[in-house]
Design a protein around this nucleic acid. Structure first.
Lengths: 148, 148
DNA sequence: ATAAGTGTATGTATATTAATTACACTCTTT
DNA sequence: AAAGAGTGTAATTAATATACATACACTTAT
């Protein structure tokens, strides 16, 4: 099963807020940039706000803002906030306790699955929204406008 | 979104075949052990067989068998065979090319996502079906029958 | 006071998984 | 040779999650 696109969209949102340092960005503009619907953006912003990564200014001229420094937000923070499920799913129903394999398979796998998850998380933890925003700015710097 | 249970069930199947060294195991018995349906087991066995991890003996007394040494099969092999999707999903629709963020966000994220995936895969690659089968046997050895 | 924009709810389409049933084909056993 | 066992595969169904879309009340700036 695929993982949701929420993680990618969330990083997109936060990077956009970092790039627009200080000025509020409307959910509609974020939606256009991420090729999705403003309700989807607002739903994600809701989660990010509850986790104190963003705030929103209501009313005219309002929009979303970073609530923290971009270099204090790691991709792991984002991943944990918006991704609901474990990376590895186990059996839907508990295996047969009366079978040696069924009784012990999950405990036998767990240490490996944990190490794998931790290794993945360590990489996500090493990169911040500021890093992503910088990379975007750097790449943008070399875009030649008249070629697209 | 959750990943499928196919991976866990596949490891379960292969570990069971390793434990039952040499004697064919019916899909129905595997299904009971894994608390699922025999058609689900056969569907997974079909994939494993196509990848030359297992073979099947038709007819009476038949069942599934390992086609390779259990210590030559890593969890990463299994993961790649039965898990269809990438760990990280990107935007469902391509982001807006006319926006600096939209144009560069995916390229900016990719190196990190790649490193994270590789770190996860390295851990899965370090453990074999033989390791899992050994752990199961070890745990089973200390099961006290009259207490469960 | 008005318009802008968020926060939230609701309904819908789509996709994937897994459960279930069914059946033809192959092989072993007798 | 016949019968039964078991696989390989397809089709159907139910459950679940995502993302899209629309709508509306509430809050804030102008």
């Amino acid at each position: 099963m695929p993982t949701s696109t929420r993680f990618a969209v969330s990083v997109h949102i936060l990077a956009a807020l970092a790039v627009n340092e200080g000025t509020p960005v409307r959910s509609e503009d974020l939606a256009r940039s991420a090729s999705t619907n403003s309700a989807v953006i607002r739903s994600i912003l809701c989660r990010l706000a509850k986790a104190n990564l963003t705030t929103s200014q209501l009313g005219a001229g309002g929009g979303a803002l970073l609530a923290r420094n971009a270099d204090s937000i790691t991709l792991l923070d984002v991943y944990r906030i918006v991704e609901d499920d474990e990376i590895f799913a186990l059996h839907r129903c508990a295996p047969d306790e009366n079978c040696v394999v069924g009784k012990n398979i999950q405990a036998a796998m767990l240490p490996t699955l944990d190490r794998a998850r931790q290794a993945l998380e360590a990489e996500l933890n090493a990169v911040t929204i500021a890093n992503i925003a910088d990379t975007i700015a750097e790449k943008g710097r070399f875009t030649i406008p008249w070629e697209g």
